[in-house]
Design a protein around this nucleic acid. Structure first.
Length: 345
DNA sequence: AAGGCGGGGAA
DNA sequence: TTCCCAGCCTT
């Protein structure tokens, strides 16, 4: 039983009626439908890239308090932007947001899909979302929610991006671009959930091929995922949990954040060798091992052994720096060291 | 087209 | 544990 083109108007109507009744009141949904505040919508969409709404909401409030306007964001130092983003992950988003704010201040707020798409950190999804929600442009978004809702509705186990976009476009309501996009995403996030969809509450149940199959959660099929690589590294804590030597991380991995000086233990190398290299680079001496912390980051599993030491470059205040969770764990070893000394006394 | 890029929630 | 999250950028 496949969905007929003749059913599309009824499905569209049921979806929008459900949204008008059960849509979520989110903090960036302010202003008229199709005419929302572009700055708030843009920030929220970037924040929500690969980040669940409940989590994104916390960072949204924090971010808007720190940078209430695009001018404030453009004027802020990148360190302050990363500090507001601390712990949220995918830090290139914060760096791009800051860069794009500079462009907007110089050239004005974009008013079209193409205009948004030209900004750093704004891809097809985000451009379509902001253009529809804030500019009223007729663009159907294509994200993880849309993919899952449409795969189930049509009973497609292996939906390609092209296929999803075509299905979204044909179901789209050009009369209510923003509402339609929010409706599909709300349905995917609250009802048509990945593991245990609440089909009993779904306004599209009557047309849903996956529901009819009896196994809605089997659509779409799980994606193949890359293996997690194991990485060993050593770090030096020169100072204490409050003030320590910190280095700015370069490159794509946690780029822009501060962290304890560290060296990766290379293939066929002993940790001692890597530690010696690290100490020499810093002009520091090692006093002892504080412990090991582990950190998993989707694609790699990091084992970081932390040592205490003396000397090295000037220390800086930890609370002023933007650190990854990994470095917060490493600094936590200092407190545990104090505890064990106290317990043994 | 494929792989890198954080961190956490849900089941 | 496994899978996924209002994806984007680089190769």
């Amino acid at each position: 039983m496949t969905l007929s083109p003749a059913d599309l108007p009824a499905v569209r109507g049921a979806l929008l009626a459900w949204f008008d009744r059960a849509g979520r009141p989110l903090p960036w949904r302010v202003g008229p439908e199709g005419g929302r505040d572009p700055y708030r919508v843009w920030v929220s969409e970037v924040l929500l890239q690969q980040t669940q709404v409940a989590r994104g909401q916390v960072y949204f409030e924090r971010f808007m308090t720190a940078f209430p306007t695009v001018q404030a964001l453009a004027d802020a130092p990148i360190e302050a932007v990363l500090k507001a983003w601390e712990g949220c992950g995918y830090y290139a988003r914060a760096r791009n947001l800051h860069r794009a704010a500079g462009v907007i201040v110089r050239e004005g707020m974009p008013t079209t899909y193409e205009g948004w798409r030209a900004l750093p950190g704004v891809g097809p999804y985000t451009a379509a979302a902001v253009a529809s929600l804030a500019c009223g442009e007729a663009r159907a978004v294509n994200d993880g929610n849309v993919r899952r809702v449409l795969a189930r509705l049509h009973g497609e186990r292996q939906p390609t991006q092209t296929w999803v976009q075509a299905r979204a476009d044909e179901l789209f309501d050009p009369a209510r671009p923003g509402a339609f996009n929010e409706a599909v995403m709300d349905l995917g996030a609250t009802t048509c959930t990945p593991k245990t969809p609440k089909c009993g509450e779904c306004p599209l149940q009557a047309w849903c091929t996956a529901f009819a199959s009896g196994y809605p959660a089997a659509f779409p099929a799980p994606k193949e995922r890359a293996a997690v690589r194991e990485i060993h590294a050593v770090a030096l804590l020169l100072g204490d949990a409050r003030e320590a030597v910190l280095e700015r991380r370069e490159g794509s991995l946690l780029g822009g954040l501060m962290g304890l000086p560290n060296e990766v233990v290379r293939e066929g190398e002993t940790p001692e060798k890597a530690l010696a290299r690290l100490a020499e680079r810093l002009g520091a001496s090692v006093t002892g091992e504080l412990g090991t912390v582990t950190h998993t980051m989707t694609h790699r599993h990091l084992n970081l052994t932390v040592y205490g030491g003396l000397g090295g470059p000037p220390r800086s205040r930890v609370s002023d720096a933007a650190l990854s969770r990994l470095d917060h764990k490493a600094l936590g070893l200092w407190e545990r060291r104090q505890d064990s000394l106290f317990a043994g006394a």
